[in-house]
């Protein structure tokens, strides 16, 4: 669906079903250079199993118009405005990589908006080599190639795909190479508020981490999990692009955690 946020048309995927705001909402946030399609195989399950799903393309990415956010703080503000525009008061917020940093900023601005917080293949800070940013400025496709070589684990590099017949590297490359990758990477490089933001999170949380993650090494993700006292799931044989390369395992981890949070909410509201 399309909606206007801060004067620009935003695209938001709803998992193949009309968004119902009276259902528990799950908000999916994509990583650098990516879009809502990162979550293609998770959003559909939630939409068809009793949830309202929102997977927006951040401004200036793929199907959303407007200029891209130039800081993580801006993207957190945009998310708050987006939820207001949707009329959503609270959501389970799932962020992949950079999307998790934006979720942290949303949490800082609007702590009550988070029913739960889930980080997927991420950390509290994502330092980026300046040469990669320079490359992305000159040639987003070349930078995408570098990131995809690092981003996907061994099986995907070998052409194995969770969806029969498809090639995740080519799909990711087309999306990343045509999005404002350099701006996103600069946002990540500049962001240093993650640790403080993590300290302010009060919502229940989970971290789904990859054993072969070279972009946000697992050590950094484990540190946040510890800090947040988050439920921890480690998928050992996969790389940074977890939602795409291990979609079923990520879905299982997400639904177990989100359903458990919903159960707790249900139990406390009935007691």
């Amino acid at each position: 669906m399309k909606l206007m946020v801060n004067g620009y048309e935003a695209h938001v995927a709803t998992g193949g079903k009309k968004f119902e705001k009276n259902l528990p909402t799950v908000l999916f946030l994509h990583g650098s250079g990516l879009d809502h399609r990162s979550w293609a195989l998770q959003t559909r399950w939630f939409a068809y199993n009793g949830f309202g799903v929102l997977a927006p393309d951040f401004p200036g990415h793929s199907l959303s118009k407007g200029a891209p956010c130039v800081t993580i703080e801006d993207s957190g503000k945009w998310l708050a405005d987006f939820l207001d525009a949707m009329g959503v008061r609270e959501a389970h917020v799932v962020g992949h990589s950079q999307g998790f940093l934006s979720a942290l900023e949303l949490s800082k601005l609007k702590p009550t908006a988070l029913k739960s917080l889930i980080g997927v293949g991420t950390a509290a800070a994502i330092p980026v080599n300046p040469m990669l940013i320079e490359t992305a400025e000159r040639s987003p496709m070349k930078a995408a190639d570098l990131m995809l070589q690092w981003g996907f684990g061994h099986q995907t590099q070998m052409g194995v795909s969770a969806t029969p017949g498809m090639q995740p590297i080519a799909i990711g490359r087309q999306i990343m190479g045509n999005n404002p990758l350099a701006v996103d990477l600069q946002c990540c490089a500049d962001y240093c508020g993650g640790v403080d933001a993590v300290g302010l999170v009060t919502a229940p949380s989970a971290m789904i981490l990859a054993g072969q993650d070279k972009m946000t090494p697992i050590k950094a993700g484990l540190a946040i999990a510890d800090h947040l006292q988050a439920k921890l799931v480690v998928l050992r044989n996969y790389g940074h692009m977890l939602p795409i390369e291990a979609p079923k395992q990520v879905l299982v981890a997400l639904r177990e955690f989100i359903l458990s949070v919903e159960k707790q909410i249900g139990a406390s509201s009935s007691s």
Partner: peptide
Amino acid sequence: EQRLAALEGGSG
């Protein structure tokens, strides 16, 4: 399918 997509540089 995945091998042919890889060899041609296709998405699927």
